[in-house]
């Protein structure tokens, strides 16, 4: 699966969440704001108001703010895997958030989306998210399945 296809399929998944501004393109995810809102819905106790408050909402074209937001999202996700799921993702190349912020790199964006997806399908209320995925178009489900399988192959308790 190409990075394009992975990102587009995971964008379709992102659009199933009730977000303040529904992203219409992968580009709109590169400021980290929508991803942070998804994490707050997935695990509100972990990604709490204090954490969300550190995400800057008015990003505009400022790539430094994008990097800062994306770093917080990535660190939060990795902490969630360690502290809540009790898993480490070994051999999974962590997304380079600078490349996402500076040049909207789809390969890196795909990896970050994959990690957020992993939080959703492993969290306490995963049924809710998995059932939504099971209602999606077959091609999207297939892309999501591949993304999860790749992550699962790197998980170490």
């Amino acid at each position: 699966m190409s990075h394009d296809e992975l990102c587009e399929s995971l964008l379709t998944w992102v659009q199933t969440f009730n977000l303040e501004a529904n992203p219409e393109t992968v580009d709109e995810l590169t400021d980290g704001v929508a991803l942070s809102q998804i994490l707050c819905q997935i695990a509100p106790n972990f990604f709490n108001a204090g954490w969300y408050g550190r995400i800057k909402k008015e990003v505009g074209d400022n790539w430094r703010i994008r990097v800062s937001n994306l770093k917080k999202v990535l660190e939060g996700v990795l902490d969630f895997y360690n502290d809540v799921l009790g898993q480490q993702i070994r051999d999974f190349k962590h997304p380079d958030v600078s490349k996402i912020a500076e040049r909207r790199d789809l390969a890196e964006m795909g990896r970050l989306l994959q990690l957020v997806l992993g939080c959703a399908v492993n969290c306490e209320h995963k049924e809710e998210y998995i059932n939504v995925i099971m209602g999606m178009e077959e091609s999207v489900q297939h892309a999501v399945m591949n993304a999860i399988q790749e992550l699962m192959s790197k998980e170490m308790p």
């Binding site: 009790g86 492993n122 306490e124 998995i130 297939h142 399945m145």
Partner: peptide
């Protein structure tokens, strides 16, 4: 070799996968 094999990407495969995810225990331990 499996190209075109019926059922390789069908609903059953997807349902099996997601149902197995549902039955997987969440969280550590």
């Amino acid at each position: 070799m499996d190209a075109g094999k019926p059922g390789a990407t069908n609903e059953g495969v997807l349902a099996n996968f997601f149902n197995s995810l549902l039955s997987k225990k969440s969280g550590p331990g």
